[in-house]
Simulated scan of single mutants.
Amino acid sequence: MTRFHSFCLFAAVLLVLACGPVRAADFRSVGSASVVLYDAPSSKSGKRHVAPPGMPVEILARYGAWVKVRDIDGDMAWTEAKGLSARRTVVVRAVQARVRAAADDTAAILMTADKGVLLELVDPQAGDWVRVRHQDGIGGFVRAVEVWGI
């Protein structure tokens, strides 16, 4: 193993040790402005893509002012924590999610949301159902298994 490879391995181990564990299922949403997602916790590292406002992400680790996040597809990247918001959103992962008037399969359907639609999470206490609101103002309940971000 060359000196360079030894140094890289040592640096990687230090980074892993420095990243404290975060409680399971710690979700945030991208704030009002888009954020850049990077390969490493540095704006000098490779840019992966730009995350749009409102996109939910799961925080996996923290390193100073940076957080390692996972998106709905399971892709992981780093971004600055200041670009995330405590306002919670979820994204529909079912082909169509039915937003109902009550947390019951027999309740009236207020709207259907297609796969990929962002919904505001009104009540973060998740059970089998979660309370959500669409950007048009329609609010109701959707099955938790039909959305991602809780």
Score class of each variant (00 low, 15 high):
V35P: 00
S85P: 05
A103S: 12
D73F: 06
K82N: 12
Q125S: 15
V30C: 06
H5N: 14
A51M: 06
H49M: 07
I150M: 13
A61G: 03
Q96V: 08
G74E: 08
A113F: 02
A97H: 01
D104Y: 06
A25M: 06
I109V: 15
R62K: 12
G54P: 05
H134W: 08
D75G: 07
A101K: 14
T106S: 15
G116I: 09
A65K: 14
D136P: 07
V145Q: 15
L110F: 07
P124G: 05
R93K: 08
M111W: 13
W129T: 00
G116P: 07
G137N: 05
G137D: 03
M55D: 10
A61R: 04
V117T: 11
R88E: 04
A102I: 13
S45C: 02
G127Q: 09
D136S: 15
I150A: 15
I72F: 07
G74S: 11
Q96E: 12
Q135C: 12
V117N: 04
D104Q: 07
S29A: 14
I109F: 10
Q125I: 13
A86F: 11
G149Q: 05
A144S: 13
D105Y: 15
P53F: 03
G83I: 05
E80Q: 15
I59Y: 02
A108C: 10
V35G: 00
V117Y: 03
A144F: 12
D75W: 06
A61W: 03
V13N: 04
A51W: 03
P21W: 06
L84G: 02
S32Q: 13
D105E: 14
S6V: 12
Y38H: 05
H49P: 01
V50R: 08
H5S: 13
A33F: 11
A94E: 03
D128R: 14
F7K: 15
A113W: 01
V92W: 00
C8R: 09
V90L: 04
G46F: 08
L119P: 03
T2S: 11
Q96P: 02
A103H: 07
K68W: 02
S85C: 08
R93E: 05
L15C: 15
D71H: 01
F10N: 09
R133P: 04
F10E: 11
K82W: 12
